[in-house]
Design a binder for these strands. Structure first.
Ligand SMILES: [Mn+2]
Ligand SMILES: [Mn+2]
Ligand SMILES: [Mn+2]
Ligand SMILES: [Mn+2]
Lengths: 219, 219
DNA sequence: AATTAAATTTAGACAAATCTAAAAATAATA
DNA sequence: TATTATTTTTAGATTTGTCTAAATTTAATT
């Protein structure tokens, strides 16, 4: 069976919203997709008929195994294309989301596999999010917020909490990116700023807001 | 202004059909787009309203300057993506058309320019068709059919008349591709087969059908 | 020139995806 | 529990692109 771009966007949105264990509500979906609740209801009936999800009126929605598989395929394409755009074509990470939002709907199965191979089977996208493999499996990132990292433990930046241009600008200026190794030397309770040190550089402090936007894993 | 995938496909189809000087007819378009004449009429009215073409009922259609510019942009994307698929991702040239048919509608202007630069600003796609540059200009190929090439003139394969798997299979077997240099040694009137010679190889004959499917330019 | 044939356009209907406004169900609060 | 407030669904329209069947125009033949 094949699905329209609209249907695929709904499936992906549900996938991202159902990370908890509660069902996804009509209003949540409407907000995520910048559409109206009435439109969501219409589409949910359609996607239920296609067996991509379980849905009963007034009770929210959850993807079926089928739906989850479809969602993972779309997420795989989205993140592979993001990797391509940044790694191969030198886009900034704040520029790639909207383009990938289109590219993720290109249907060729062969294209995805060839692209994956060309890129060297990357495990994470430019924002540190895991890329599902061709079977839908992806690395489970147990990264923690930088604000919670213990003192003097060397850790590697593995993800960001936002993909905004503003964050990218700041990170560029401080020479921090995915993969940067650092350790926390002090935490200041006055403003919750923290002092970090990157190898071969002098220690410097970063704001609470920035620390909360960074995820790290210990190495 | 932005255009739907359907509108873009119409514009591109008209562009390809209007190479002569006559207007493009409704039926020609319907055949090209695998749709019905009535649908074409509806769409032509819409595209006329958007000033992409001139159209009067019963008189056929022709692209405006606007329309031509749009068409060249789509053709540029189509051929750049085909080049990418063959050159970077190692697709066979018979596999790329349908994928490029989708990729040509990705809207990001920046993506096209970065892709073009990454590929090294190629001038021709894998089938020997010229790739328009960012201003819509493209090399005017004055290649001739191999069947019409004079004896003992060294020429370079510059295009194919078909993109079928069958042709590709045959050309692979004979080690002929775009860029191959060859000369015609004899022409046989019995079956119109021709004997060709590729540098450092023994001469061999190819059929009339194959010769007619190959375009060359003298070097 | 009259007739037939072919091409093209209109008329009317349909499916997909969306919207607004009103109704119905559920949740929250007094 | 009764009353509000919120969420969700239905009802009815709208837009885009498509189709079939019938009407119209143009082209080709007698
Ligand atoms: Mn999308
Ligand atoms: Mn991402
Ligand atoms: Mn297309
Ligand atoms: Mn081509």
């Amino acid at each position: 069976m094949s699905f329209s771009i609209t249907e695929e966007n709904y499936i992906k949105a549900i996938f991202h919203l159902q990370q908890g264990d509660e069902n996804v509500s009509t209003n949540e979906l409407a907000a995520e997709l910048h559409t109206k609740a009435a439109s969501v209801t219409d589409m949910l009936k359609k996607l239920k008929a296609k067996k991509l999800l379980s849905y009963e009126r007034y009770k929210g929605v959850r993807l079926s195994a089928e739906g989850k598989k479809l969602a993972l395929g779309i997420v795989r394409k989205h993140r592979l294309w993001e990797f391509f755009l940044v790694d191969t074509l030198q886009f900034g990470w704040d520029e790639v989301h909207d383009v990938a939002e289109e590219l993720e709907h290109i249907s060729s199965k062969k294209l995805v596999e060839k692209l994956d191979a060309f890129l060297g089977h990357p495990k994470f996208d430019p924002h540190g999010d895991p890329i599902p493999d061709s079977h839908g499996k992806m690395a489970v990132q147990q990264h923690i917020n930088l604000i919670d990292l213990a003192l003097n433990k060397i850790a590697e930046v593995s993800g960001v909490g936002s993909q905004s241009t503003e964050l990218l600008e700041l990170l560029k200026h401080k020479h921090i990116g995915i993969g940067t190794k650092l350790e926390v030397k002090r935490k200041f309770s006055f403003d919750h700023s923290i002092e970090i040190k990157i190898k071969n550089q002098n220690a410097f402090t970063i704001s609470q807001q920035l620390a909360q936007a960074l995820f790290v894993k210990t190495v």
